[in-house]
Simulated assay, not measured.
Amino acid sequence: MTFRVTLQPAERVFDVARDEPILAAAIRQGIGMPYGCRDGACGSCKSRLIEGRVLHGAHQLKALSAAEEEAGFILPCCATPQTDCVVEARTVPGAGDHPILKMPTRVLALERAAPDVMVLTLQLPANQRFQYHAGQYIEFILRNGARRSYSMANAPGRLMDPPAIELHLRHMPGGQFTDHVFGAMKEKEILRMEGPFGSFYLREDSNKPIVLLASGTGFAPIKAIIERLQDSGSTRPAVLYWGCRRRADLYRDDWAREAAATMPNLRYVPVLSEARAEDDWRGRVGFVHEVVMADLPDLSGHQVYACGAPVMVEAAQRDFVARCGLPADEFHADAFTSEADKHGS
């Protein structure tokens, strides 16, 4: 049994199988809807139900509150239709461009970029052409069926030879996957992955100046976007704000400084929230999104790409729109939700 879902205002119509989430059906059929975690944790896919009934699976109240649900909002990532439905949701041009592939991948290199950050280089199979937008992510499929999501840190035009992707992983002590990465993982190990996923990537049909906002390893997809700007010959003004706690956490500071030195339109502003005497820090201090607002009090003509901890992304979205005049549809984000975030712990 299937139900028909119509997306407004784009007038896209697609079928959803019984017990299938609306978002999963859209992805399966190449229809671009906004989303981030696919787990009911981040709220990126939040949409309005105009007609019909849905049943929600488990989700975080911060992603969809009881009051929002009462007001007619749904999370397509965990909402299964019970009737034909009409949903008001932005469609994302390009989100369904590239086929989602399941494939094996081989560990080429492990680099400890900071005490708790590993840069993982993964070789792609030669017989499958993996395509993605800079900013998107893949999911590792673990032996027990669990999944872990990580963004590509290299632009699609920089897949290396042999073709390989770069990922930045932060160690979550006790984490099923990252304990292995920081402990027993060796070069040549085979992992299973699926992708690309996500509606976080550069909108190349705009000429607005860009604010790139990262915290921690949220720098990874931002790095890919910067490489894409460079590879495409973009002349759009862009500024990168990278917020970390301590100086050692700016694990690719040299890369960012070099990118700003070689790209005339790119500025780089590192920000520390807990700078100490031993950091010998003469740069900006504070919450990274507040530093952006101090520098750019009027964001009405800008486009923002934000990636990192959910608390930073949520604060930036709220304050940039309310206090700096950023149009709500020009805030593009990918909140790095951990397994603890997803399960409310």
Rank of each mutant, 00 (worst) to 15 (best):
A220L: 06
M118C: 14
E88C: 13
E330A: 11
M293H: 08
A340W: 10
R246A: 10
T262W: 05
G135F: 04
P297L: 02
R90I: 10
E11W: 14
H289Q: 03
K62T: 13
P9V: 06
R282K: 10
V313K: 00
L169W: 07
S232C: 14
G183L: 01
A25S: 08
S232P: 11
P327A: 03
A260M: 05
M312Y: 08
C45K: 00
V292D: 03
P310S: 00
D205R: 06
I50N: 08
I222A: 01
R90Y: 11
L7R: 00
V269I: 14
G218Q: 00
F200E: 04
R90C: 12
Y35T: 08
Q136P: 10
G157E: 04
E227W: 08
P104I: 00
I50L: 13
K188G: 12
P237D: 06
M193Y: 09
V211A: 10
S273C: 05
L299H: 03
W255P: 11
P209H: 04
E51M: 05
A261N: 08
I190T: 15
L169M: 07
V285W: 06
V269E: 01
M312Q: 07
E258W: 14
N144T: 13
E166K: 13
A26L: 03
E278S: 05
C45V: 06
P163M: 02
D205E: 13
A66Y: 07
I27L: 13
I100T: 10
A95M: 01
E187L: 11
L212M: 02
S199P: 09
I27V: 11
S47L: 04
N154F: 02
K46P: 14
R236C: 03
Y201G: 12
K46R: 06
Y268G: 01
R276M: 09
Q8H: 13
Y201K: 05
Q303E: 15
D254F: 14
K46D: 07
A66I: 08
S273D: 05
V16D: 01
A153N: 08
G243M: 00
D298S: 03
F140D: 03
A261Q: 05
A24K: 07
V291D: 07
F219W: 15
N207D: 15
V304M: 04
V321L: 05
Y251I: 05
